[in-house]
Amino acid sequence: MSDPNLGASLRGAVDLSSLRGRPAAPAAPAAAGAPGAGGLVIDVTDATFGEVLELSRTVPVVVDLWADWCEPCKQLTPVLEKVVTELAGRLLLARVDVDANPQLAAGFQAQSIPMVVALVAGQPVPLFNGAVPEQQVREVFAQLLQLAAQNGVTGQLPVGEGAAASADEEPPLPPLHAEAYDAIEAGDYARAITAYEKALAENPRDADARAGLGQVQLLQRVQGVSLDEARRAAAADPTDVEAALLVADLDLSGGHVDDAFGRLLDLFAELPADARPAVRERLVELFGLVGDDDPRVVRARGRLASLLF
């Protein structure tokens, strides 16, 4: 098994926005079900996952996607529990039964199990698939803790009390971020965009606001759009830039990153010079959403550069 992709960027193709509850201070994961290991190992569901997602801003969360019929899962889960327990609260293990929680399975794009993903500051970080040796699990978790520290996630859960982080212990969201989250929950993407833009005007280095702005702008563009109708429009006129941009947005929001990039790069190659800027700008925007260190972005950037020069 190769080393996990633990780059400095946390943004990936996995879209967990639909699984995020209102970003208030998280409730104790024990409410989601704590089967053992002093509360450091919990079972989560489609309904309770939002609590764990928000908790990952305090402590890294390892998500174990499994099923009762999966024999490799039965080999891996005890290893994960052992290593997490030994780390004494520096990690939380969240177990997801993919059969009982189809929304989570789809959100994580679980093509095969066991699948292990981390959450750091609300962002997914792929770790590994399949039952791997204990020593490799330890090495991966050590890298995960380093990545979390680089991103300011250095909390520790009280052993024996699980993730009983209270609202008093969780710092409140900045006002403009809270306003954006409330607007997203209400489906008012325009208000969320305005809030994030104000946050960036106050602090241009606010990475969370910049990432949130890009994600909400994408959500606004695809809101209420029929994928089938968009594909038909793009197929009817392969040179229709707006139609191609819309399908690329839909592909990316659905996790089909290479399809989105490939469509726009193919179009870019065919367009005259004066029609290219809109496609290039959208590509750069989508690169930022996926993450500059993602290998798919690296490949697409390379092809874009070759087309430009």
Rank of each mutant, 00 (worst) to 15 (best):
M1C: 09
P4H: 07
P4M: 05
P4Q: 06
G7P: 10
S9T: 14
A13P: 11
A13V: 08
V14Q: 11
V14P: 03
D15Y: 07
S17K: 09
L19K: 02
R20L: 09
R20Y: 00
P23S: 03
A32L: 12
A32V: 09
G36V: 11
G39M: 10
V44S: 11
V44M: 05
T48M: 06
V52Q: 00
V52L: 08
L53Q: 00
L53F: 00
L53G: 00
E54W: 00
R57P: 00
V59S: 01
V59T: 04
V61P: 01
V61N: 00
V63S: 03
L65S: 04
A67F: 04
E71N: 10
E71L: 13
P72E: 10
K74Y: 12
Q75R: 14
L76C: 10
E81T: 10
E81I: 08
V83L: 03
T85Q: 09
T85F: 09
L87D: 05
A88R: 15
R90D: 05
R90Q: 13
R90Y: 03
R90N: 08
L93V: 06
A94L: 08
R95I: 12
V96R: 07
V96W: 10
D97P: 07
N101I: 03
Q103P: 00
L104N: 01
F108Y: 13
S112I: 09
M115H: 12
A118R: 03
L119Y: 03
L119V: 04
A121T: 04
G122L: 03
V125L: 04
V137F: 02
E139M: 09
F141K: 06
F141L: 14
Q143T: 03
Q146T: 15
Q146G: 12
L147R: 15
Q150A: 15
G155N: 05
Q156E: 11
L157D: 09
E161A: 12
A163Q: 00
A165K: 05
S166A: 13
D168N: 03
E169L: 09
P172D: 11
P172M: 02
L176V: 05
H177N: 05
H177V: 01
H177M: 06
E179D: 04
Y181D: 08
E185I: 01
A186W: 04
A190E: 15
I193G: 07
A195V: 04
A195H: 05
K198V: 12
K198Q: 15
K198M: 14
A199E: 09
A201D: 14
A201F: 06
P204W: 02
D206H: 14
A207Y: 06
V216C: 02
Q217D: 11
L218R: 15
V222E: 15
G224E: 15
D228E: 15
E229A: 15
R231F: 06
A236R: 04
P238D: 11
T239Y: 07
D240K: 04
A243N: 10
A244Y: 02
L250S: 13
L250K: 14
L252G: 07
S253L: 11
G254N: 13
H256A: 13
A260T: 08
G262Q: 14
R263K: 15
L265M: 13
A269C: 09
A273M: 13
D274H: 14
A278S: 15
V279C: 09
V284D: 05
V284K: 09
V284G: 01
L286H: 12
F287T: 02
V290C: 03
G291D: 02
D292F: 10
D294T: 01
P295R: 01
R296V: 01
R299I: 00
A300C: 05
R301Q: 15
R301A: 08
R303V: 12
A305K: 12
A305G: 13
